[in-house]
Design a protein around this nucleic acid. Structure first.
Lengths: 242, 242
DNA sequence: GCTAGTTTCAAACAAGCGTTTGATTGAGAT
DNA sequence: ATCTCAATCAAACGCTTGTTTGAAACTAGC
């Protein structure tokens, strides 16, 4: 009757850790799932596709993770949680250097971007896959994805909003929230790498997959946007025809 | 054997057009599909869900549209094509007024935003649904969606990239392409309305669903980003720790 | 060698999927 | 009244989905 245990204890072979090409079943599933979820999305990726690519039995997913949804969450947390931890740590480091003075927008953006860049570089293939997957999860309508992401981001967002509010004292608190929202949207959208529209834009081929160059173009764009003057209220300079 | 005709001729009742509450089966399907695709995404929305909501027979989708994919494309074109047509028309109008002089970034952005705003307002519920659906389709990995979208956008993008290039003569052509890419990303991402992260940002409740106010905040942000100075090449002001 | 516990495996499960079929309806044309 | 053809319908098709099952294999500890 009861669920198949999912015991997290699993006595590890504490004698000699196998460092050979043999990889843990759980990790093999996570790696395959990361790539396939990125490629086809959550709904369109079947467990049979994942387990075949990972060379494990079909039932292994439900045994180790409980369900397809929990597998998806595990794929996300594995890298998202450390990345957001890095971001906050970096922000704290910058702040302690600045001796109580407000940081520049560039510095704060750096604290957001550098951990993402590290991910794109370190695990040379897997990391980039993950960033694309994350960008797509951002736009996924599935409720369990949305509430999972917001719970993962809430702490980081509070910290960075406070930092931006100090860097941009002339802006109302609400305007700061919106602009942070825009920044995170542009970042996730850009990292998601919607190839179709990129082809339209006829970029140089060597740039199209170079996340570093990409973020170097995006960061100044966003910094300037953050510093933009506030809209003069009632004059309706924008959005009237003729 | 052969496919069930899908004849587009369908003799319309040319005598007296029924203007009562009776709506065309095709339109009922499109309306229901628009809302449900927006809510659950393409893969997670079944034809049975759509046809039940539309109060039509299950086979009606395959009869009128041919397949689920073609239905999705029909949902998109119905409003996307006129919107992009409006955008280009508006841009042309602005340009003819300016007597050959380059437009400001604000004007060009207006030409992109106003048709989207009209959609959000006119069909008070359906239009907003559509914008959210569009934002999500932007991030969908399904190949048929990606290539459909790029074919729908290619003409508009060429026109607007040329306009931005004239407005920003100090930027290289490639930089302009990237910034247009960022603008379209921010726009679609913002209109997609990722509710989860909005809740985090603790906005005023009356603003959260007011697309007009939303775009009034986004437009100055993007205009400032477009005008940002180019990154000084090798100095690596960005993205190095400490 | 026995035992206990974790992990793997092939097989099956019920449910849902997109699509097709063939009959039935209903309105306009001859 | 008859013919025609687009439109609707209930039913079924073949297939895939996520999950469950119970036995087998494997790995320590004693």
């Amino acid at each position: 009757m009861a669920t198949p245990a999912i015991s997290r204890l699993q006595r590890t072979p504490d004698s000699i850790v196998e460092k050979t090409v043999e990889i843990d079943t759980k990790s093999r599933i996570l790696d395959a799932a990361e790539e396939l979820f990125m490629e086809h999305g959550f709904e369109a990726t079947s467990l049979r596709l994942i387990t075949t690519a990972a060379n494990v039995n079909l039932a292994a997913v439900n045994y180790h993770f409980g369900s397809k949804e929990e597998l998806f969450q595990a794929v996300l947390t594995r890298r998202l949680d450390p990345m957001n931890q890095d971001r906050m740590q970096l922000l704290t480091a910058y702040e302690s250097v600045s001796n109580g003075g407000a940081l520049t927008c560039e510095k704060i953006i750096s604290a957001m971007f550098i951990p993402a860049l590290k991910l794109a570089r370190d695990h040379q293939q897997g990391g980039k896959n993950f960033l694309r997957l994350l960008g797509r999860a951002y736009a996924d309508p599935a409720p369990f994805i949305r509430q999972f992401l917001s719970s993962q981001y809430v702490e980081m967002i509070v910290r960075f909003r406070a930092a931006f509010a100090r860097a941009l004292p002339h802006l109302e608190r609400e305007e700061v929230s919106w602009r942070l929202h825009f920044v995170m949207g542009a970042l996730s959208y850009t990292l998601a790498g919607t190839d179709a529209l990129k082809m339209i834009a006829q970029f140089h081929p060597e740039e199209i997959d170079n996340d570093e160059l990409l973020l170097k173009r995006l960061a100044p764009f966003l910094a300037a946007g953050l510093r933009a003057p506030v809209q003069s209220g009632d004059t309706h300079q924008w959005f009237q025809e003729t």
